[in-house]
Design a protein around this nucleic acid. Sequence first.
DNA 1: CACCACTCCTGCCCGC
DNA 2: TGCGGGCAGGAGTGGT
Length: 270
Amino acid sequence: MPELPEVEITRRGIEPLVLGRTITRVDVRNPNLRWRVPRNFARRVVGQQVQQVLRRGKYLLLQCAGGWLIVHLGMSGSLRLVDPKTPPREHDHLDLVFGDTALRLRDPRRFGAVLWKDGDLSRHPLLAALGVEPLGEQFSAEFLYRATRARQAGVKQLLMNANVVAGIGNIYANESLFRAGIRPRTRAGRLSRARCARLVAAVRETLQAALAAGGSSLRDFVHSDGASGYFQQQYFVYDRAGLPCRVCGTAIRSARLGQRSSFYCPSCQK
DNA sequence: CACCACTCCTGCCCGC
DNA sequence: TGCGGGCAGGAGTGGT
């Protein structure tokens, strides 16, 4: 599923092809996404020129002359650049057409979203409360230490709290905690400064490694319509319950934590 | 506030 | 072989 690295790779992939271009047509084949695409969507968006392609957490943001397009891929969404004449396949719900090329959203589960916001984006309710970027400078050991004080929840739940750090999903929360040697259930408020530092470094390394893996497949990822979807990686713990830890061989354990499946190595993580 | 359960939806896997 | 049931999963929403 699209986690932050996939969203960033998508951003990099579409940026050179949509930057400076004007939306000439919008085809909404199925408006029933996370939030229903309004009837006046096309009217507001056609004629807009894309000035910047940004990412905030897992939101893709296309800044246009008169407003912003906000795109979220949910858990099964993907954006591809296609020839607008290419017949849409099942689940290809929406096209943003830029003359001879189109951004096509496919999203079988329809947890994704496409929104238009007139004018300014600051204080938009979806973005206003988002925490720091995990790959940004503000996500530091000291930041995490302060953010975790007096928190009773497990550190994994805190890592996945977008109001603290934006865009860390279940897979990378699990993987980052493995890299940091910290168990998912560890109470956030009990983490030492040193462990916070290790965790911050681990999150960065994990996301960067995924970005590097995705970067190499960027061309396919963005251009080919037939490809299966997101880049595959080898995970240390995610979805590996019962399998041997890649580092020490101990069986990976799974546990339910805050409605989410968690995976950890009982030997490598304490 | 902090935390939790619930919700949207489909593909996939399992058991019968 | 086909079908029903259960489940995963991002993140907003609403309740305690």
